[in-house]
Design a protein around this nucleic acid. Sequence first.
RNA 1: GCCGACGUAGCUCAAUCGGCAGAGCAACCGCCUUGUAAGUGGUAGGUUACGGGUUCGAUUCCCGUCGUCGGCUCCA
Length: 598
Amino acid sequence: MAEQQRTRYEDSDLYRIRHSAAHVMAQAVLEMFPEAKYTIGPPIEDGFYYDFDLPRPLTPEDLEKIEKRMRQIIAGNHRFERKVVSAEEARQIFKDQPYKLELIEGLEKGGFDEYGNPLKEKVEISIYQHDQFVDLCRGPHVESTRQINPAAVKLMNVAGAYWRGDEKNPMLQRIYGTAWRTPSELEEYLWRLEEAKKRDHRKLGKELGLFYFSEDVGPGLPLFTPKGEMLRHLMENYVRETQTRYGYEHVWTGHLVKEDLYRRSGHYDNYKDSMFPPMVDENIVYRLKPMNCPSHMTLFKEMGRHSYRELPLRFAEFATLYRYEKTGELTGLTRVRALTQDDCHTFCTEEQIGEEFTLSLNLIREVLGRYRFTDYKVRLSLRGEGGKYVEDDEKWSKAEAALRKSLDENGVDYFEATGEAAFYGPKADFLARDVLGREWQLSTIQVDFIQPARLGLTYIGEDGQEHTPVVLHRAVTGTTERFMGVIIEHFAGAFPVWLAPVQAVLIPIADRHLPYLREVAQKLREAGLRVEVDDRGERMNAKIRDAQRQKIPYMLVVGDQEMANGQVALRLRSGENPGPMSIEAFLARARRDIEAGD
RNA sequence: GCCGACGUAGCUCAAUCGGCAGAGCAACCGCCUUGUAAGUGGUAGGUUACGGGUUCGAUUCCCGUCGUCGGCUCCA
């Protein structure tokens, strides 16, 4: 996990190129819409954007025109001139630009950057001008528009975005663009996008016949086919067995909970809008369970008085939760309304936090490794400004100190992010990169000093007195649905043998081989393999083609020779052809591959 | 929820100006009995997402609803 020593993005050529391209784009847009109000336009990963307040929605044809005009501006070889100005001068320059005036006010008042984050140093107000276009900007830029390669710039799409990212603010139009040093870099980036599209789990999920969504059932509520459910089962079973080996115990706490419990835990105030609407029976109000912590804590309480000798107590559950995500937030399996968490709550003493953290960490490392996620980083998510965090400075600093200590003692490299904590405590979040370099938040370990006290949890300590336990919240793969989406894309649908819903398909060359094949299939099933016999009235070639497209790890072809010798001819989805071998030899090979995680 | 685009057969996509909705694959029924990525003939498949409006006539134009996609916001 060691961070490579390299130039920060902010100091790179690419950053300057993209930042400058954003200015050029803003110029082109302002020429097209002189009454446009322009706001901010920073470089981002792989490109840049600029937000505008425009008199009408942009069309794809507009983008083409803007892009064309950008190339002309670039060809003009205009210098980027930086100038430091006073707030007063800045206000004069941007007198018709209300968003810029708001930014100037922010800069003047002790300094906030364009994202609204407070700046540490006193800020100097600077403007950049090229050609006829002036922008309030900290820089840096390239020296001249000529340093932007016009053949390596492309406008991508238009999207809505709230001014300053606040949904109470007006909606602006954001144009996304990408810019690179050379056309071949641009080509490679576009290829990467294409590749990502091919791996899209929504597309592959349908092609591989794993899951569907239906308007009849409802948005964000996936339906899993037999193959999809097999995959779920394999995923959950693997984590379950691993957890058991690590000393976690599984509990089950159902799907409905009295709303009152969530009022006491604090979830109601924070999340009532993203819970499904209440179900009322006489005068009792129930909710579909959106999280497990209060249920697990209640179970802890109901199990009677706890001695310190019983701790740590680790309650794990594969619980399907229901969250009323806003319709616009739903995306395939990665954001659904019915989600199955591999959740765990560890009840322990303050002294045990370190050990329990290490246990969770080792579990997470093992599981992510098995799924071939080797590149991940850890984010220490801390509380930020704003009202959602429970007020109790002492408990927060204790939790934060405990988490930091655990991370340090385990030699984990981490970076910090304020405002990313849960309302009840800080988190260590694991962000894994998939083979295409995209980042996913998967595992999490959270330290909670708040909820156990709120819900009145106690144990009897060595001193005979009541104490409040600490709760560690922990998830490994996060949710089955989302993780399935991620691994579909990570493996491009070609799951390792241990995860493949169908591990082998048996293909006869002619119908007369079918009885023998069925015998072989039975043997393989008895040995624990998931196999299918392809007995359709198709030719072998067509069956191989279909098996390839289903990304089935092993194709076992049988003709007269194999049948005579009690063999199968193995073909792999890679196209490799190890050829005829005995059933035992094939089983040995399959066992080896499963063990190795291939 | 907000901004924008989109919604035609199970899938991928056609349909000129508003004039009888079409192809490939898949499915089904035959024939072929096959040696490592599509053998071949035929059949069937549609309230053009849903509801309303304009029109002699709507897949096409207008309005609304639902859903999907790209973002924003949110993510216990």
